[in-house]
């Protein structure tokens, strides 16, 4: 079983991202489970969402403490929350940032920093980065295929909104393919 923890802020779509990853993973042929950290959501407050991937039926219901993957939707979270907590050796951390990561990174963990906000602003006209980050996650993790992700996005959104989100995800995917 592989596990993903998503760190975001209320309103950034962390829970939607987790759901879309689970749907895309299932379409890619593995079992998946997505759930939010059950907090009292407020816009701007740190939130978490989780995804499990497995070749077998997933029975475990606890939150995720030792993830293989972490997505950080907003780099300002790194100062507030220990986003690296419990990450396994060989793990991958995907960070949306326009700057270098200055914080110390646990040994054996690969950090992939990229500017998802820039892509989202260009493609969607809004700083909503979750779908862009999904494309990036597909590229660096290999847990979901771009085709399955596109299918999940076209089920969630309609018309030009679906097309724009798929394009943003595809740009991020192509940018990061082979990075991790």
């Amino acid at each position: 079983m592989r596990e993903l923890r998503i760190h975001g802020r209320g309103g950034q779509g962390s829970v939607t991202a987790a759901e879309l990853i689970a749907i895309a993973a299932f379409k890619s042929g593995v079992q998946a489970q997505a759930f939010p950290a059950f907090g009292v959501e407020r816009r701007g407050a740190p939130v978490q969402a989780f995804v499990r991937f497995s070749d077998k039926k997933i029975r475990l219901r606890s939150q995720i403490y030792q993830p293989n993957y972490v997505i950080v939707q907003d780099s300002t979270l790194i100062a507030d929350v220990n986003v690296f907590a419990g990450i396994q050796e060989g793990g991958i951390v995907l960070v949306n940032t326009e700057r270098e990561i200055k914080q110390s990174v646990p040994e054996g963990v690969k950090v992939v920093a990229f500017d998802a906000t820039k892509i989202a602003l260009e493609e969607l006209g809004l700083p909503i980065t979750n779908t862009t980050l999904l494309g990036a996650f597909a590229a660096v993790s290999g847990e979901i295929t771009l085709d399955a992700l596109s299918e999940a996005l076209s089920e969630r959104f309609t018309g030009t909104l679906a097309e724009k989100n798929i394009k943003a995800a595809t740009i991020a995917y192509n940018m990061l393919k082979g990075e991790a």
Binding site: A18, A22, F26, Q31, A32, Q33, F35, P36, R61
Partner: peptide, 12 residues
């Protein structure tokens, strides 16, 4: 069924 743990979880 357990609130959040099942009500808010996506699974097959």
């Amino acid at each position: 069924f357990d609130g959040f743990i099942l009500s808010h979880t996506y699974e097959p």
